[in-house]
């Protein structure tokens, strides 16, 4: 039961840099403090002029409440000021339904089905053209 819980305050989400894109992978139940720390970390990392995109992978997140929703929106707004684009990737259906019901449709946020797709959206061709290509069956 306690195995998945984040450690209090010590929890920090790593912000990875792949080429000119920042990649943030959220997992499990996020502590408010951790989310706020993340917001700051991303803003600082995005201040680097060579960063032109931020990808936030939500595929491992089971719940997004209005607090985390607002953190995501704030990250997007801040990075936009720094001329970088934020894409939220892999949101689960149950989370999406709940956010809409909550009234948070996050209109300013770009979204993608997966991290791979998000990187492609950000013009990730320069990173690695074969990265995460989905299996393509000829119709």
């Amino acid at each position: 039961m306690t195995g998945l819980s984040p450690s209090p305050y010590g929890g920090q989400v790593p912000v990875l840099r792949i080429g000119d894109v920042l990649l943030v992978t959220l997992q499990g139940d996020l502590h408010d403090g951790t989310a706020e720390q993340l917001q700051q970390d991303v803003s600082e990392a995005a201040a680097d002029s060579r960063v032109n995109g931020v990808v936030i992978d939500l595929s491992g997140v089971e719940i997004v409440d209005s607090f985390l929703g607002r953190v995501l929106a704030d990250i997007a707004a801040k990075t936009r000021l720094l001329a970088a684009e934020t894409v939220v990737a892999g949101m689960r259906p149950a989370v999406a339904i709940t956010l809409v019901e909550l009234g948070l449709t996050l209109p300013g946020l770009r979204t993608a089905l997966s991290t791979e797709e998000a990187l492609r959206l950000l013009g990730g061709a320069s990173i690695s053209p074969r990265y995460g290509r989905t299996r393509q069956e000829s119709p």
Partner: peptide
């Protein structure tokens, strides 16, 4: 709502 949720998923 379906349209909005689908958009959130990408």
């Amino acid at each position: 709502k379906t349209v909005a949720a689908a958009r959130l998923m990408g």
